[in-house]
């Protein structure tokens, strides 16, 4: 079917967290946090231009929704926001929004080489949900009007997520797979191992 690219055959909600997942979360958080913090000077008010925003989507697609989500949450909130002094302001909205931005493509992109799906779930849907969380939280706290922040996040995050995420994902997928780090492969391997043990 032509529409197979939209959803994976099976949506996997659970992800086993072993030492490798922890390590990948740490590395993803460092990359995303430092990438966000280093471009902090390109700011529109609370929202910074983030050419490295694609790392969140990439981590979700390559290493799974929970690894990607936690890496984006830690990188954005505990590294970038804390170092920049913005934690108290954008805290909860930024944490949930960035988590969703990585979690959604991780959950719904069927394959890292499926560029259309990455563009749809990472570049558009995930980013819009992130903008909703950030803008909604700021408006709820009365710090700034909703539309201003909603549109700022979209302007900052859509270009890297829509253009760079699918390109870099295509470049990195083979290397990641060869190292045995691709999350769907690891899940299958775990399943096979369990079945062998049962037998």
């Amino acid at each position: 079917m032509k529409s197979d690219w939209i959803f994976p055959k099976k949506i996997i909600w659970k992800q086993k967290f072993g030492t490798l997942e922890i390590a990948l979360t740490i590395i993803g958080a460092v990359l995303y946090g430092l990438g966000s913090f280093s471009t902090m000077s390109l700011a529109i008010g609370f929202i910074t231009l983030r050419p490295f925003a694609f790392i969140a989507v990439l981590w979700g697609v390559l290493f799974g929704p929970w690894v990607g989500g936690l890496a984006a949450l830690i990188g954005n909130t505990f590294i970038s926001d804390i170092l920049a002094g913005w934690f108290g302001i954008g805290g909860v909205g930024g944490a949930l929004g960035n988590f969703a931005m990585a979690f959604i493509p991780g959950l719904l992109v069927s394959h890292p080489l499926n560029k259309k799906a990455i563009m749809l779930w990472g570049g558009i849907v995930g980013t819009i949900i992130c903008a909703l969380f950030v803008g909604g939280w700021m408006a709820l706290m009365g710090f700034a009007p909703f539309m201003t922040l909603f549109s700022s996040v979209l302007i900052c995050d859509i270009p890297p997520n829509l253009i760079l995420a699918p390109i870099v994902s295509g470049w990195l997928f083979n290397r990641v797979q060869k190292r045995g780090l691709y999350w769907r492969d690891r899940l299958e391997a775990d399943k096979e191992e369990e079945e062998e043990e049962e037998q």
Partner: peptide, 18 residues
């Protein structure tokens, strides 16, 4: 690309040490 690649190597090292 090489930055992410070298970080992935580091991730494997962290996992081994854990």
């Amino acid at each position: 690309i090489p930055l992410i690649d070298s970080m992935l190597r580091k991730a494997q090292n962290i996992a081994i040490s854990l």
